[in-house]
């Protein structure tokens, strides 16, 4: 019988711990498949964040680090400077990258650090129980914006892909979404391009991925996908913002 599907060996056999309908598991698989397809498993390491994806180091069949909250780009920089011929990616949530770790991500891009960042924008702090993130939409209710995010009080959501694309050192910056099969396929293509930019030593690369958090959005998985499509995509346009 012909094999039509096989789990990539870049994922371990440890079962994911994510909630039903969570986007993290989809993105883990896409990253692992890209690493397999590019044939770089033995030359690639990853940095897990503090956030729901903290156990990424149990799931990826490559050498891994666990970084303190927001510091993954600095940790990846240390690895890359020691092993310039190897590849490394960071995997970060929006609290991790767009709040506590803004200095690290901006300066990794600024240095043109030859690393790849996978940025999961779920408009919320998933792990700590649904607090407001810098990416939380205006009016969105969270446990620390119980009446909805008020831009007068705490500003409007930050657009990371647009911001990093203005930085000279960035080589590939895109925003994708997990709301449909075509968009998931596009996400994988973008991840591949991001790794390719690192392989070609072009500079810093990042893919921002709009991803559902049904649990903390208080929605069923199907509803969450619809909410992402109806609310997040209009504010966070999809596309490639930079490709050198």
């Amino acid at each position: 019988m012909a094999t039509v599907f096989k789990k990539t060996p870049v994922l371990t056999d440890v079962p994911f711990h994510y909630c039903p309908g969570c986007g993290h598991g989809i993105v883990h698989r896409l990253v692992a498949e890209v690493i397999e397809e590019l044939g770089i498993q033995e030359k690639c390491a990853g940095v897990a964040p503090v956030g729901c994806a903290v156990f990424l180091y149990n799931y990826m069949n490559i050498d891994m680090y666990e970084a303190a909250h927001g510091r993954a780009p600095a940790v990846a920089t240390g690895f890359k400077r020691v092993h310039p011929d190897k590849y490394i990616f960071t995997y970060q949530g929006d609290g991790d990258l767009a709040s506590i770790g803004t200095a690290e991500i901006v300066h990794a891009a600024h240095r043109g650090e030859k690393i790849t960042t996978i940025f999961i924008n779920n408009a919320i702090y998933g792990m700590t129980g649904g607090q407001m993130a810098p990416t939380t939409l205006v009016g969105q209710k969270t446990t620390t914006s119980p009446l909805g995010r008020d831009p007068e009080h705490c500003g409007k959501p930050i657009r990371i892909a647009e911001m990093l694309s203005t930085i000279e050192g960035s080589a590939f910056i895109a925003r994708c979404a997990l709301n449909s099969t075509p968009n998931i396929i596009k996400t994988k293509q973008a991840i591949k391009k991001a790794f390719q930019a690192q392989i070609d030593r072009k500079g810093f690369s990042m893919v921002e991925i709009l991803s559902p958090c049904p649990t903390n959005w208080g929605k069923a998985p199907g509803e969450a996908m619809q909410w992402l499509e109806d609310n997040m995509i209009p504010y966070y346009p999809l596309g490639t913002f930079k490709e050198v």
Binding site: A45, Y65, R71, G78, F79, H83, A103, H107
Partner: peptide, 21 residues
């Protein structure tokens, strides 16, 4: 390799990355 980090926070995390490597 010498690298001037953006902060001491970043510098020590680069040390973590390099030492871990």
């Amino acid at each position: 390799c010498f690298l001037q980090a953006e902060s001491e926070v970043a510098a020590i995390n680069m040390v973590y990355g390099a030492g871990g490597a």
